[in-house]
Nucleic acid binder design. Structure first.
Lengths: 204, 204
DNA sequence: TTTTGATTTAATCGTTTGTTTAAATCAAAA
DNA sequence: TTTTGATTTAAACAAACGATTAAATCAAAA
């Protein structure tokens, strides 16, 4: 009973994750999720009280997946700034190669829910107070780069990594490539992005 | 009569643009649009046949705005590669400072409509066959940069420019800044991004 | 076996939402 | 002024959708 419980609940959650990620909250219909999970519509409301409740769970777990790999890699005190850079890029591209819809999903839903989601997991703390953040500020001080450029560099770093997944249809069109070739390009970026970030740093 | 026609039709289209841009197709309700336009609900179907039809018009005009400034700047044969780079970045950041929701809107709707929209305005032609594209390939040849890196460079260039607007809530949170300060940062990027792109090119 | 509580289903309810209809209003032409 | 056609509105329809209900099923405990 218990094992089947978990299985059904997980099955619904996995289906909800898939449908919410690809269609967004407003575009996802409870009947779509039920069909995707292979269950009756009423089961969805039996396990989770409502569409909203189910969505909150999916959103929370998605953001956890998305920011947790960042946070853990950012706070390893053993590794150098350069190594952490490579590790984070590697983690992200690996994660997004399996679930490429995550960034667009998060950004889209944030536009409807501007403050609430950002505050829940306070990204500012994760980024600024992390070992990585401190190492980066130290390096900027060494190179006489003004403090306010910190945000620019974070934007560049995350943008170079995440943007291709957000703009995947356009990228595939411009490069005239399929999904496999797109993933190959992203694998290449694991080594290229750290080089580019360093080049940007040196140019400032 | 005629002048009032146009005025009402434009008023509806402007309202639709605003609501579609911020809520997406599925999240936008025809009643929201009617209220935003200050008109009766039935008027929407009187001027435009349906929600879908109205959406198609908004989407077409939005993509035209978004890619046309690109295309025209890309195909000026007078300007050098470096100057074109600066002009395109400047155009884009100016446009997006006024309508920051456009990129997220386009990307979100593409996920529901993968092929149709990309094919309509064939971005590949605009980018690859443009003077800018040819100048870039020439420069890459001079620097012995392998051809397949072309897509990487385009991703970097557009990503550095567009991504901050897509991730605006997160950027504002990380930088602990308000909308005005965000726009200031974007103004700075008008001069910074061309420098960074050159730094990236030199590192390859 | 019978009982009990959890799980699953079919059917339906009430609201939202896109669209239509029929009538009212208005501005210009006759 | 009357007429005509375009414009606008109030009201309602029909389908989609989120949620609930009541009954059926099933697995384990008594």
């Amino acid at each position: 009973m218990e094992s089947n419980d978990k299985s059904t609940e997980e099955k619904i959650k996995a289906a909800a994750r898939k449908v919410f990620h690809t269609k967004g909250f407003a575009g996802a219909k409870t009947r779509d999720i039920a069909e995707e999970a292979g269950i009756n519509l009423a089961l969805l409301n039996y396990y989770f009280r409502s569409k909203e409740k189910l969505f909150e769970i999916v959103m929370f777990e998605t953001m956890r997946d998305f920011f947790q790999s960042l946070a853990s890699a950012f706070n390893n005190p053993e590794t150098s700034f350069e190594l952490k850079l490579s590790l984070v890029v590697d983690n992200y591209i690996t994660l997004l190669s399996h679930e490429p819809e995550i960034p667009l999903f998060i950004m889209s839903e944030m536009r409807s829910n501007p403050t609430l989601l950002v505050e829940k997991m306070n990204i500012r703390e994760v980024v600024i107070n992390s070992v990585f953040g401190q190492q980066m500020k130290f390096m900027m001080a060494q190179k006489n780069i003004p403090e306010h450029k910190f945000v620019h560099l974070i934007m560049n770093f995350i943008g170079l990594t995440v943007f291709p997944f957000v703009a995947r249809p356009i990228v595939k069109s411009i490069g005239n490539i399929n999904d496999d070739q797109f993933n190959e390009l992203m694998q290449e970026r694991k080594t290229l992005i750290p080089l580019w970030v360093k080049a940007i740093l040196d140019s400032m």
